[in-house]
Nucleic acid binder design. Structure first.
Lengths: 219, 219
DNA sequence: TAGATTGTTAATCGATTAACAATC
DNA sequence: TAGATTGTTAATCGATTAACAATC
């Protein structure tokens, strides 16, 4: 019939967690229905954007009434794939790695870091936020055995490629790379490069635009 | 003359740090010039995308030769605003906050967290990664005095609005919010909502697409 | 000179915005 | 019934992709 994999929109995926977090707050207050205009108002978005996004995830509302909050949460969770639990491994138990290991947002959205690896042998055998840390030498065997598909890289840039190679050898299909280094990977492996600096620059540019908009009256 | 604030493209801003990191590696090897096709190949991007992005930041190359690597790095740094140093404050010295305070990527790209605040008084007076931690009660005065414009929020969601209000009272113009909570702010304040889960979902969706593409021969 | 690579112009695609009919 | 809000269709805008001329 149609395409085997539903098309997805990156801008929408970036907005959906915002809706989700807001709707969780709403449901905690006991509110049962909400309109797209209300959501838009609270999140400083255009109401049409919200309506389109909700349409995209397949949510159904009723004119005049709006959407059932629980339905929206389910539709978003479903679209984002948060119903099932996906297991991850992490390599590089430094500051960033430890923070990710302790991040509560993963569990809430169907992700679980089940093992971590670090080059420093003194860290092996310990556990961080309840997640066991192993020596890198055990990486390939363990990841293979657990059939993990996603690996997180939080090592310094000069070690990133080496770690990526090990993960690939272990059969990983996706790499979430927090190290500012370009990775060479085979065609069947996906890489998501993460660099939070982008977000900070976007914030700055928005501030500049806003400030300029205040200074000039019109045109 | 033209618009007072240059237009900016969010997709481009998200790609530029990748180029920058890669070019830093290249320059470290002593290579002096590079072509857009080479950059594209290493970063798994379409060469045309790279060419367009470099055009956007105002880089000039020479046919047959390519671009001078140092020129590219400068052009990108310039476009991203990394030449000058911008000061930030952070509120919420937990795991994530500490990781951000220790993140070397800030200094490299013109950002500096100059002070942090935490509700827990036991943390006051200490310093994390060389950054002093103060009680929240000192936030408004100190931020006003230092004339900081950007605040990072890494507190639990239920405290986020309260912290945002303090930052706004202190004259902040931009909030980088890592807490999954919708913030109410006045019109002259920009908010950049951060949720790394989006990136993980994008990675997953890309993996699914890739895998589906392998399974079906064509159509 | 020949060819690789840039810079530029045009075409396509997708996302956002707008308009409006359907409906509770 | 009247009006608010959804769902849908159309228009605009911007980003990506393609084609090609300019040039070192």
């Amino acid at each position: 019939m149609t395409s085997p994999v539903k098309p997805f929109s990156i801008p929408i995926i970036r907005r959906l967690p915002e809706y989700h977090a807001f709707l969780e707050q709403v449901v905690a207050k006991g509110t049962e229905t909400i309109s797209s205009t209300t959501i838009a108002e609270f999140l400083n978005l255009d109401p049409i954007v919200v309506r389109k996004d909700l349409e995209h995830v397949g949510a159904l509302g009723k004119p005049k009434i709006g959407f059932v909050v629980q339905d929206l949460i389910s539709a978003i969770s479903d679209y984002m794939g948060w119903e099932r639990v996906d297991e991850l491994v992490l390599v590089g138990v430094g500051d960033l790695g430890s923070a990710l290991m302790g991040y509560a947002g993963f569990a809430k959205r169907g992700f679980k870091i089940v093992a971590a690896f670090d080059q420093m042998l003194s860290k092996s055998g310990t556990s961080v936020h309840g997640i066991p840390v192993f020596p890198v030498s055990k990486l390939v065997n363990l990841v293979k055995r657990l059939r993990i598909e996603i690996g997180i890289i939080t090592v310094p840039p000069n070690a990133a490629q080496e770690v990526a190679d090990l993960l690939i050898e272990a059969g990983i299909k996706g790499i979430w790379n927090f190290s500012p280094a370009a990775l060479r990977v085979p065609a069947n492996v996906s890489v998501q490069q993460e660099d939070i600096i982008s977000s900070l620059v976007i914030l700055q540019k928005n501030m500049q635009k806003k400030h300029a908009g205040i200074n000039k009256k019109e045109e």
